[in-house]
Nucleic acid binder design. Structure first.
Lengths: 107, 107
DNA sequence: CTATAATATCGCAATATTGCGATATTACAA
DNA sequence: TTGTAATATCGCAATATTGCGATATTATAG
């Protein structure tokens, strides 16, 4: 039918898939890389840097933000995006546990 | 237009995205988890375990295999899938470097 | 060779994703 | 309030993904 059958899988499998989906687009990876560089980035600057239109960049930002990995705050008319390091570490841990657990079972 | 613009991003960003795409479906995560458990799994067994049809399961297996993470070998009429630990470690490293590098820049 | 069991591929329908232009919204300055 | 700069949202077309039934392929047993 064409819809991912989330309900038949474990919560853990869905969590990992959800996080991976955020990183499954090179534009979003590039955005995260760029935001890491500067402490607080403008959508406009990111858009220029990754060479995608402002609307497209904004949409990707929303997708990443939905996971909690990004936080933003208005200063003047501009919105400054930065990485929520705590969430970022949690995400890393989720992947790392998955990789480690799988590896351990193979040995 | 609806196509991911891979060419405008760095090779590294594309690599990470490609790998993440494999993990962006919970069925594929579940398959990897299950294959880790048994040393050499049949498509049939995996299909039953994750409760998706045999064709769907086989297709997911091909997608994962394309990255090199899975290897397979025929024994009798059956095909046994198992994880290529070396490739698995490389994949982990790729993610880990990305997470670490991003984190380092934030501090 | 023929039958059989296991897996892979094809073709399809439903849905999701990607990227953009046009437009709406937001927050401040004057 | 009005103008302005920055960001968010809408609506769309093109393409990609997901899952399945039907069927083809593959590898062995007899």
């Amino acid at each position: 039918m064409g819809v991912t059958k989330r309900h038949i899988h474990s919560m853990r499998a869905n969590q990992i898939a959800d996080l991976a989906k955020v990183l499954s687009n090179p534009a979003r990876v590039a955005i995260i890389e760029y935001i890491g560089d500067c402490d607080g980035c403008l959508c406009q600057d990111i858009s220029e840097k990754i060479r995608l239109s402002q609307p497209t960049t904004s949409q990707h930002l929303q997708v990443i933000k939905k996971t909690g990995i990004l936080k933003s705050q208005f200063r003047g008319k501009a919105q400054y995006y930065s990485i929520d390091v705590r969430k970022w570490e949690q995400a890393q841990q989720l992947f790392q546990d998955f990789f480690d657990a799988t590896k351990a079972k193979c040995i």
